[in-house]
Design a protein around this nucleic acid. Structure first.
Lengths: 226, 226
DNA sequence: TCGTCCAGTTCACATAACGTTCACGATGGA
DNA sequence: TCCATCGTGAACGTTATGTGAACTGGACGA
């Protein structure tokens, strides 16, 4: 996901924390000039602008954003309760606003709804490890950009392993965590699925799933660099 | 000014008071049937719906409002903090939301901004994906310029899927989101409708609806956040 | 009132995809 | 070297899904 533009710079810590928690990448700018200067290659995803500290600068930045060649959308304004009156006649400068101090989950919900409204898809939930990506919403997987055609159990197993990189799991643990606690079946089933996963990952990435002899399997590198 | 539609009936006193204070006329309705029955001659100006007391009824009313011949705009949802998660995947049911308990002036500011926004018509009346077009106002569908003759349920299902491209939905989710939460029926109903949709989409576009084995169905390609 | 039509649902069956198991060969540590 | 452990290919049984057709209930007109 492209980063959000944040104002002011430095960003209020509770805002930075809320966005980090919600998994939104961001980049702070100090003034209008910095909007173009520090724009990422793939553009901004939107803007979150604090108007409670420096209202003048905030509204000036909004105006600049709206006047850009590529008007940046959406713009979410953070305002204090006493500033609600300032919004009047400035409707064109923002797409939504949020009262400050804010609840982190309200901010997240507003951003999601804004992205939906403005046509940008919501952020997909991803599991990532190196160049492996699992999209949990679309049930799709890809490595190095190459889509992987996985079956249901293969996907579930890979999802579990990739969610706990570096950790070793016994076959019994995998059976209970991936297949289900009530599952009653042979442990070799895991081996077969691991084999097929390694085959589909390709020779180059087959070593992502390592065998730990007489213990089980581990995904990715060990936490202790050898 | 035309009155706002309020739910539930009776209206929470602090909401009624805030609207009276802001000078917004309003009229409460108890259920979906009352939306049309007690509609003023000049229509509704918008809706403010409390979802914190009776979420089921509130969302049902939202759906009914969106499905009206004259979809009523804008819809402002009042939710409690714990309900923020419920908003996910229901983006299409409301135009803005406000945390409850609310500051009267925040509610007023949101309504004013909403009226300003919807005065320019920002809610999409079209759903588009590649060469598929759904006209939500005329209930018509076309792909590659060719009109599609869809039944009501087929249209609703396709509309829902095409509104969330790439995302996988289980049959149960589809039943609850497209058929309705109160629906009790076999999951195979979804299969049959998907089959007829694929048939009507034509051999060339049948793959727009993909089955994800042991999970459900997915429309279109996934969105890899680049 | 009856019969027809149509959308929606359910059912029964066919089938291909999938998960599991097994036998055997390969591997690696003691 | 020995033996527990793991990889491998193929075979087997199960299950989810596709498919055609029957069923149901309401709308409509004769």
């Amino acid at each position: 996901m492209e980063p959000l533009l944040l104002y002011p710079d430095p960003v209020p810590p509770e805002l930075a924390q809320a966005l980090d928690l919600g998994g939104f990448p961001w980049k702070a700018v100090a003034d209008e000039a910095a909007v173009d200067r520090s724009e990422p290659d793939d553009g901004w995803a939107g803007a979150v602008i604090c108007a409670d500290l420096d209202p003048e600068g905030a509204f000036a930045l909004c105006r600049a954003i709206r006047k850009r060649d590529l008007p940046l959308e959406p713009v979410l304004l953070l305002v204090s309760g006493t500033q609600l009156g300032d919004l009047e006649l400035r409707d064109d400068l923002f797409d939504d606003f949020c009262l400050s101090p804010f609840h982190p989950r309200e901010l997240e919900a507003r951003l999601k709804h804004l992205f939906w409204r403005t046509g940008r898809g919501t952020r997909p939930e991803l599991v990532e490890y190196a160049n492996l990506i699992l999209n949990l919403e679309t049930y799709q997987a890809a490595i190095s950009g190459q889509p992987l055609d996985l079956t249901f159990m293969e996907y579930e197993l890979l999802k579990f392993l990739a969610s706990h990189p570096g950790k070793v799991f016994t076959r019994e643990t995998l059976l209970s965590r991936v297949w289900g606690y009530e599952y009653y079946g042979g442990a070799r089933t895991v081996d077969v699925h691991v084999r097929r996963l390694r085959a589909k990952l390709g020779e180059e990435h087959a070593n992502l799933i390592q065998t730990v002899r007489s213990v089980g399997y581990r995904f990715g590198q060990s936490r202790w660099s050898l």
